[in-house]
Design a protein around this nucleic acid. Structure first.
Lengths: 124, 124
DNA sequence: CGAACATATGAATAGTTGCTCATGTGTTCA
DNA sequence: TGAACACATGAGCAACTATTCATATGTTCG
C-alpha cells in the first residue's frame, strides 16, 4: 500500500498498529513545543545548575557566594548563571561591584518537588 | 582569618555573605539528592525521549510504532527505551515477537505540565 | 529446522557540553 | 587616575551523548 510507504520513511519494520499511531499523533503537541520542553529540562539536567537554582530558591546570592557554597570556581558559576539567565530562570541586579542573582520563575521549586517525588518514591 | 581559607577552597573572591552561605547550606538537600535530581531531569532533556514519553502517555505502543510515529529508526528508539527503562520511567511486556512499552510512572505527565507552564507563560 | 520478523545491543562517530585558563569589563576608593 | 575587586566571556579541551551501522537475540510459523 502506498500510504504506508509515505508514512514510514525510516522505520524498517512493517507497521502494526496504524490506528494507534494516528490517534497518538493527533493528541501530541506540535514537535516544536516538545523540543522547547526538552530544552527546558536540559537546563535542569546538570547538578551544578540544580544546586544553583536550589540555593537561589533559598536566598538571593551574589556570584562569589554561590561559588563558595558549591565549592567551585567563580568562572564556572558565572558561565552557568548566564545559561540560566538565557533560559529566563534567574534574574540579577547590580549593587556596586556585586551582582545579586535570584530566581525569576516560581515554577522552579514545583518542578523540583515533582522530580523529588519520583526519586524518593521508588527508592531509586 | 584561617576559617575563611578552609571554607573557600576554589573561589578566588573574598567571601562577602558568610551568614547567607551558612543558612542556605543548612537548608539544602544532601548533594547526592540534588545529583539524582539532575540525573532525572537529564532523561527529560532530550526531545526524542520527551516525544517517546509523551506518546506512551497517550497509549501503550510497540517499538516499531514509536519509530514510525517519530519518523526515526527502530534502533534509535530501542536505545532510548533502554535508557528510559533504566530510569524506571517505562516498563514493557512481550507478546509474541512484539514488545509493548508503557509508562511506569504517573509523575511524568505532571512534570511535563509544570514544564509547559513555564514555556507557555512567558511566551518563550 | 530454517526463514522472516521484531527487538536488542556493541562499536564507532559526530555533535554537544561543562569546565579551566586567560583576559576583558565595570565599579569603588584612595 | 590607577589599583583592587567582582564578575563576564572567549578559546580550548576532555568527557559525554545520540545516532548510525552491523549484528545478535528471541519468537513465530511453515
Amino acid at each position: 500500500m502506498k500510504k504506508k510507504a509515505d508514512v514510514i520513511e525510516r522505520c524498517d519494520c512493517v507497521m502494526i498498529h496504524e490506528d494507534t499511531i494516528d490517534r497518538v499523533r493527533k493528541n501530541m503537541p506540535p514537535e516544536e513545543t516538545l523540543y522547547d520542553l526538552a530544552e527546558l529540562f536540559k537546563v535542569f539536567g546538570d547538578s551544578t545548575r540544580v544546586r544553583i537554582l536550589w540555593a537561589l530558591d533559598e536566598s538571593e546570592m551574589c556570584v562569589c557566594d554561590i561559588a563558595a557554597l558549591l565549592n567551585t570556581t567563580q568562572s564556572a558559576v558565572s558561565h552557568q548563571l548566564r545559561y540560566l539567565k538565557q533560559a529566563k530562570l534567574v534574574k540579577n541586579r547590580r549593587e556596586g561591584k556585586t551582582v545579586y542573582y535570584s530566581l525569576a520563575d516560581e515554577h522552579v521549586k514545583q518542578i523540583f518537588d515533582q522530580g523529588l517525588d519520583h526519586i524518593l518514591e521508588d527508592g531509586k
